[in-house]
Amino acid sequence: MRAAAVAIDRNAAAAGVPIATADLEVADLQVGFADLPVLNGIGFRVARGESVAIVGPNGAGKSTLLRSIIRLIEPKSGIVQLAGQEVLSLRERELRRLRARIGFVFQRHNLVSRLSALTNVVHGAQARAGGPRTWLQSLARSTVRDEAMDCLARVGLAEVARRRADQLSGGQSQRVAIARMLMQRPQLVLADEPVASLDPSAGEDVMSLFAGLMRDSGMTVVFTTHNLRHARAYADRMIGLAGGGLAFDMPAGAVTDARLDGLFGGRDG
């Protein structure tokens, strides 16, 4: 059984991460759909400013874990301490306020296809600015429009501000999604395989841009990836998931090929 072949290294979970500076702390997280358990007692901490890659084979529960952290999927039990708040006990309004401070980059860009790139970025201010003025760029305050243009410029796409999202390439769309995330002025960023839907060349460009922006702003990042090279290049720490459980949690530089082979069952991830 593959899960059994993977060395479980729970003790490494807390290594070098003081609790006081943790931006994210997950403990004994249980997630499942009906009677099917997906995550079984996951626990880890992410320090402020840290970049953590979550790796694992298909079906290991990587996306479920990220979605559970902000309750896009409701966990069954456990503790998720995010930006100083216990997520699982928040009411809807409080949860919305918390989500406003957490950037989430999806595998697919999830832009509104018929709206302009600029409007999609303006949407990032929705929880902060609120109301109908963030529904469309044409209704937005000048300060919001200027900030959205600045976010587009940061991802190198100021010139496509007026272009409809469905007229952008895959790489451009994902960069607009990153600009929308920047517009939230997030405290912590969760990214679910942010370049998995892109061709290799565009994927490298977007990942490099994304990681650079996060590094420059000192933002805390947790991202899932199948690309072990990305995990090694852009993460301080790597968390391995297998069969819904934690396989290892250690500094990215300390993860050996043998450990990864064990995680992916001998396949190249």
Partner: peptide, 28 residues
């Protein structure tokens, strides 16, 4: 498409905001 709706939920938009920003433009 449920994707843009989920993106709006993830960034803390209200139900009304999600409908007017992500659902109605797609259904237009």
């Amino acid at each position: 498409d449920k994707g843009p709706r989920e993106a709006m939920t993830a960034l803390g938009a209200s139900r009304t905001g999600t409908v007017f920003s992500a659902v109605i433009p797609q259904a237009m």
